[in-house]
Simulated scan of single mutants.
Amino acid sequence: MSEITILAFAFVAFIGIVTPGPTVLLALTNGSRYGIKRALAGMVGAVLSDFVLIGAVALGLGALLAASEFWFTVVKWLGAGYLAFLGVMLLRSKGTLNIAGKHDSADVTTTAIFLKSFLVAVTNPKGYLFFSAFLPQFIDLGLPQAPQYAALAVVFAAVDFAVMLGYAMLGSQAARFLKHAGAVWLERICGGALLALAGSLAVYRRAAN
């Protein structure tokens, strides 16, 4: 796999990741609520999910979801339900952002932050289908495929982490300048965005074979 292929993959991955999706929205809200250090747990969860998704695609799970209406539907509704749950929780929030440097961390563990981001990604069938269509474009079939998938997974995870860190820093800095009413509305906007993503996932259909 050439350096040009890696750079092209990283660029396309960046374009796809920087567009706000569930994990970057969680990075934004985690940075706002808990500060950068605690938000790192969510980023690690999302990065681990990248390796799980790419590994699953390399083993053929993406093809299974593309071929099986039943399993696609199961994963789809799990993902949509979890996103909707997170969206509702944010909509019901009372503005518990990191205002003036005060971290809302008393009743939320780093494990919970980690699992939230991890589960959002691994229960999204779009991720499996996306990687199934995206990754083979950068795989040289004349070379061993496992090392190539591993290299692409590392690159994608690195880009994903960098983008999420940027969103978390943005959220952390924005929270410092928000009054309570502004904190409430920022969380409601993020909650509404997650609900919209849940809705889009709920109506998402497999491509016809």
Rank of each mutant, 00 (worst) to 15 (best):
M1N: 01
S2Q: 10
I4F: 03
A8G: 13
A8I: 12
F11A: 13
V12S: 12
I15F: 11
I17T: 12
P22A: 11
T23A: 08
V24R: 02
L25I: 01
L26P: 09
L26R: 09
N30G: 04
S32P: 07
S32C: 11
G35Y: 02
I36Q: 06
A39E: 03
A41W: 09
G42V: 05
A46V: 03
A46R: 09
V47P: 10
V47Q: 08
L48Q: 03
L48H: 06
L48M: 04
S49K: 12
D50A: 13
D50I: 12
L53N: 09
G55L: 08
A56S: 07
L61W: 12
L61H: 10
G62F: 08
G62T: 03
A66F: 00
A67M: 03
L78E: 09
Y82C: 00
F85I: 14
L86N: 09
L86V: 05
V88E: 03
M89C: 14
R92G: 12
G95Y: 04
T96K: 14
L97C: 07
N98R: 13
N98T: 04
A100G: 04
K102W: 01
K102E: 07
S105H: 15
S105C: 15
V108D: 10
V108M: 10
A112G: 14
I113P: 01
I113V: 09
I113S: 03
F114E: 06
S117Y: 02
F118R: 00
A121V: 14
N124S: 01
P125I: 01
A133R: 11
F134T: 12
F134G: 11
F134L: 14
L135A: 15
L135D: 04
P136N: 10
Q145L: 15
Q148T: 05
A150V: 09
A150Q: 08
A151K: 11
L152S: 02
L152P: 05
A153I: 05
V155Q: 08
F156T: 09
A157G: 02
V159A: 01
A162Y: 06
A162V: 03
V163Q: 11
M164I: 00
Y167Q: 07
M169R: 15
A174Q: 13
A175R: 12
A175H: 13
R176P: 07
F177I: 14
L178Y: 08
K179Q: 15
V184W: 09
C190D: 05
L195I: 10
G199T: 04
G199V: 07
A202Q: 04
N209E: 12
